[in-house]
Lab assay of single mutants.
Amino acid sequence: LQLFIKTLTGKTSTVEMEPSDTIENLKAKIQDKEGIPPDQQRLIFAGKQLEDGRTLSDYNIQKESTLHLVL
């Protein structure tokens, strides 16, 4: 599924993920695209901070969801 990652600067990146992927996997993919180390990334979806060990489906993240990346 395609996700949009929006940064505080207003920049939006697109990443392709599976519902079974963990937040950790997602942060690794963001690191590949943006060069931001996972330990500096905080991802927010629906007002919640996402935890590394959980999966996208745990948070009911659907295709074309927008996640907010806070550093």
Results as ranks from 00 to 15, higher is better:
51 E>N: 06
3 L>N: 02
1 L>C: 04
71 L>Q: 08
51 E>H: 08
56 L>Y: 01
10 G>C: 05
62 Q>S: 11
54 R>K: 13
57 S>L: 11
40 Q>N: 08
33 K>N: 09
2 Q>D: 04
28 A>I: 13
61 I>P: 02
11 K>I: 11
64 E>Y: 15
49 Q>D: 12
65 S>T: 09
42 R>V: 14
37 P>G: 05
18 E>R: 14
62 Q>N: 09
19 P>R: 08
43 L>G: 00
40 Q>S: 09
46 A>Q: 14
8 L>I: 12
27 K>A: 01
61 I>S: 02
69 L>E: 00
67 L>T: 02
33 K>S: 12
48 K>W: 07
6 K>C: 10
14 T>M: 14
66 T>H: 15
37 P>Q: 06
33 K>W: 09
20 S>Y: 12
65 S>G: 06
53 G>D: 10
22 T>F: 08
58 D>V: 04
63 K>E: 11
58 D>N: 05
19 P>E: 08
62 Q>F: 09
69 L>N: 00
4 F>R: 10
27 K>D: 00
30 I>W: 02
68 H>I: 15
1 L>E: 03
21 D>I: 03
52 D>M: 05
40 Q>I: 11
36 I>F: 11
44 I>D: 03
30 I>F: 03
22 T>D: 03
42 R>S: 09
21 D>Q: 07
57 S>H: 09
10 G>I: 03
8 L>N: 12
24 E>N: 08
3 L>E: 01
6 K>R: 11
59 Y>D: 00
28 A>Q: 13
42 R>L: 13
6 K>V: 14
38 P>E: 07
49 Q>M: 13
4 F>L: 08
61 I>N: 02
35 G>H: 06
26 L>I: 07
25 N>M: 15
46 A>K: 14
32 D>I: 13
4 F>H: 10
45 F>I: 04
49 Q>C: 10
43 L>Q: 00
20 S>D: 12
25 N>T: 13
19 P>D: 09
18 E>L: 14
47 G>N: 06
2 Q>T: 15
18 E>F: 14
50 L>A: 02
47 G>W: 04
63 K>P: 15
19 P>K: 07
16 E>I: 13
6 K>H: 12
10 G>W: 04
20 S>F: 12
23 I>W: 01
54 R>T: 06
62 Q>D: 08
61 I>T: 02
64 E>N: 15
28 A>Y: 12
5 I>Q: 00
58 D>L: 03
43 L>C: 01
51 E>V: 07
45 F>H: 05
13 S>R: 10
22 T>V: 05
31 Q>R: 13
48 K>V: 14
47 G>Y: 04
22 T>P: 04
50 L>T: 02
27 K>N: 01
41 Q>S: 04
43 L>D: 00
54 R>H: 12
7 T>V: 09
30 I>D: 01
62 Q>E: 10
57 S>M: 12
10 G>V: 02
21 D>M: 07
69 L>V: 06
56 L>T: 01
28 A>T: 09
12 T>C: 11
47 G>V: 02
25 N>F: 12
